[in-house]
């Protein structure tokens, strides 16, 4: 087989694998979306129904027109967006600073700090709930989105620091030195040299932080009292009644809730590629 034909074959095989992965990943998601469009008797059935037939807008319409728990669904989506975006930005800045510290400097308590971050991840959230609640109350952040933002920064920081640390460490020191020699200041060096090279890592951690915050439930439930400040995961529970659950509504709202994550992903993922380009130029 000539190399050209072989390459083509490999490419076909890779694409086929890509499609297989796509199908595996998407099928359950499809099921969620399909359920959102199934009339009730097709959800609560004992036979296998692959497509909603005919599709019904009952649930989607109900979610949009009647809202969730008497408030429009936009309200919760807006709250969730505010919390998630702020936590991502704040978390990225904090994590990048901390990651630079642990990757570029050797100081006392460095290892302890890294392990401490992991311990924070290990403790079950339920067990922390009450002490954390009283703490948030004491510092006056109870029933405020800001409190939720800060908590989520704390919850996602460990991963972000650990992850970014490897990216920062991977940036050749020589590059920075070259920049120093060119007479650039600390900030310029950071912005022009370090930042583009760690961008892919920053993107990955931002996506992680966004999704984690977006789906966080326990603290969002307990640290917020005013229904107008509820986030989406909390609002979803309005579909669960004392004696029955509105699965159609849950699936419709969940579908709606998945979309902003994909949008956020599409917005930031370019950075992953452009980070590489920028790095290559500098390298």
């Amino acid at each position: 087989m000539n190399p050209l034909a072989r390459r083509k074959l490999v490419q076909i095989a890779l694409n086929a694998a890509g499609i297989a992965v796509f199908l595996f990943a998407v099928f359950p998601v499809y099921w969620m979306v399909a359920t959102a469009f199934k009339p009730n008797d097709q959800i609560f059935t004992t036979s296998f129904i692959p497509f909603p037939s005919p599709p019904s807008l009952d649930h989607v319409e109900r979610v949009f027109t009647k809202g969730v728990g008497d408030l429009p669904i936009w309200q919760y989506l807006l709250n969730s967006t505010i919390v998630a975006l702020s936590a991502v930005v704040l978390g990225a800045v904090f994590a990048l600073l901390a990651a630079t510290a642990v990757a570029r400097f050797r100081f006392r308590f460095r290892t302890s700090f890294l392990i401490l971050l992991l311990i924070v991840q290990m403790v079950p959230a339920e067990a922390l709930l009450i002490p954390l609640f009283t703490m948030v109350k004491r510092i006056g952040l109870y029933d405020q989105l800001l409190g939720l933002i800060v908590i989520n920064v704390g919850l996602t920081l460990p991963f972000s620091v650990w992850m970014l640390r490897t990216f920062v460490a991977a940036v050749p020191k020589e590059l920075e030195e070259a920049s120093w020699i060119d007479g650039a200041g600390r900030f310029t060096t950071f912005w022009r040299v370090l930042f583009p090279l760690v961008a892919p890592g920053l993107v990955a951690t931002s996506i992680f932080a966004f999704i984690t915050t977006w789906n966080e439930f326990v603290f969002a439930l307990t640290l917020i009292n005013d229904q107008g400040k509820y986030t989406m995961p909390v609002a979803l529970n309005y579909f669960v009644g004392q004696r029955s659950t509105d699965w159609g509504g849950i699936m419709a709202a969940s579908t709606l809730m998945t979309i902003p994550v994909l949008v956020f992903f599409l917005l930031v993922q370019r950075r992953m590629v452009s980070g590489l380009v920028a790095g290559a130029v500098k390298g």
């Binding site: 009450i130 609640f133 439930l221 307990t222 229904q227 909390v234 529970n237």
Partner: peptide, 13 residues
């Protein structure tokens, strides 16, 4: 209005 599954946690807090 407190969702049914969350009542315990809300009373606790």
């Amino acid at each position: 209005w407190i969702p049914w599954p969350d009542a315990q946690k809300k009373w606790t807090t």
